[in-house]
């Protein structure tokens, strides 16, 4: 009975009726629809950010007139000056920058030295120490806050930079990240450096570290981001405004200015600017840091 048997996929793969012109038009429609979908998604993702900025520029009654409240009337930027005057946000930002920078430098240094040991040195007990590093990944900071708080009290480190920085000066994640980079250094290079009279330290600082620069950059951005965004620990060990980080400062700002929404939103905008700049400038390094755990394994 069947006269014509055409494989089901054939007409779709090589449609004889569709002219190149029509195909081009179809492609154009498709990419237009893609742009529509992308733009809708982008608008949804950005809404909280946009509304926060819009509200920070409005005064009380104006903020309540929907839908007019969605766009600021005149651009009155004085609220950003006021938020610096009313709250200690300048000091909070300084504290956050200092603490995050110290943690970043510390983590990079301890990770480099520890990574070198696990990548290059052979000695008894190495595996045990490696497991100890691995084990720290299994203990979330939230589990140990009660005991760590006692330690900080007994050191007299409440309301101090030491208390904010020292507990975070080592990182197993960073160590493994940099170790991975060190292990990618060719054996020949190691041998050549040895022949040139480089000892371990010489090789580490003048050969290995420069070669591991991408990994070190990724770790730096990642560490800084995490340190800047810390919440529970600084909340726990600081009461004094002089040592509060910007995250905790925002909490204070929000609870003490309930009636002045625009001030709270202005503070939120100010607090997030440094990290948005960081994201835009170091996007590549950040992505590398974030995906090194997940994709590379």
């Amino acid at each position: 009975m069947a006269v014509e048997t055409i494989p089901a996929s054939a007409p779709r793969a090589v449609p004889p009726t569709v002219s190149p012109e029509r195909r081009r038009r179809r492609r154009r429609v498709r990419s237009f629809l893609n742009y529509v979908a992308l733009t809708i998604a982008a608008v949804v993702v950005l809404t909280p950010i946009y509304v926060t900025i819009a509200f920070s520029l409005q005064t009380g009654p104006q903020a309540l007139q929907f839908p007019g409240s969605m766009w600021p009337g005149e651009l009155d930027l004085s609220v950003f000056r006021r938020v610096f005057e009313v709250s200690g946000i300048g000091r909070y930002l300084f504290n956050s920058a200092l603490v995050a920078a110290l943690i970043t430098v510390g983590q990079v240094l301890t990770s480099i030295t520890a990574a070198y040991v696990f990548a290059e040195l052979e000695f008894k007990g190495r595996n045990l120490l490696f497991v100890a590093f691995l084990a720290t990944l299994m203990v979330p900071a939230e589990v140990t806050i009660v005991a760590n708080y006692d330690t900080i009290v007994s050191f007299g480190w409440l309301d101090s930079y030491q208390g904010l920085v020292v507990p975070f000066l080592a990182t197993a994640f960073g160590t493994f990240l940099i170790r991975q980079a060190f292990m990618g250094i060719p054996r020949d290079l190691r041998d050549a450096a040895k022949l040139d009279g480089y000892g371990h330290m010489g090789f580490l600082w003048s050969v290995a570290v420069p070669l591991a620069r991408p990994a070190i950059a990724a770790l730096s951005v990642f560490s800084f981001l995490l340190a800047w965004n810390q919440y529970l620990w600084p909340l726990l060990i600081t009461n004094d405004d002089d040592f509060r980080t910007v995250q905790i400062g925002l909490r204070t700002l929000a609870s003490s200015n309930i009636t002045e929404f625009n001030l709270v939103f202005a503070g939120t905008v100010v607090a997030s600017i440094p990290i948005f700049v960081l994201l835009i400038v170091f996007q590549k390094q950040l992505v590398r840091g974030l995906t090194s755990g997940a994709v590379k394994g």
Binding site: T47, V51, L225, L279
Partner: peptide, 24 residues
């Protein structure tokens, strides 16, 4: 541009994200 927008919330801390949602 779209990729930057979609990654952008990685830059928000808990405090920033929470206060931003108060605006909604």
């Amino acid at each position: 541009f779209y990729r930057t927008v979609f990654s952008s919330t990685v830059a928000t801390s808990v405090a920033v994200a929470s206060l931003m949602f108060i605006s909604l």
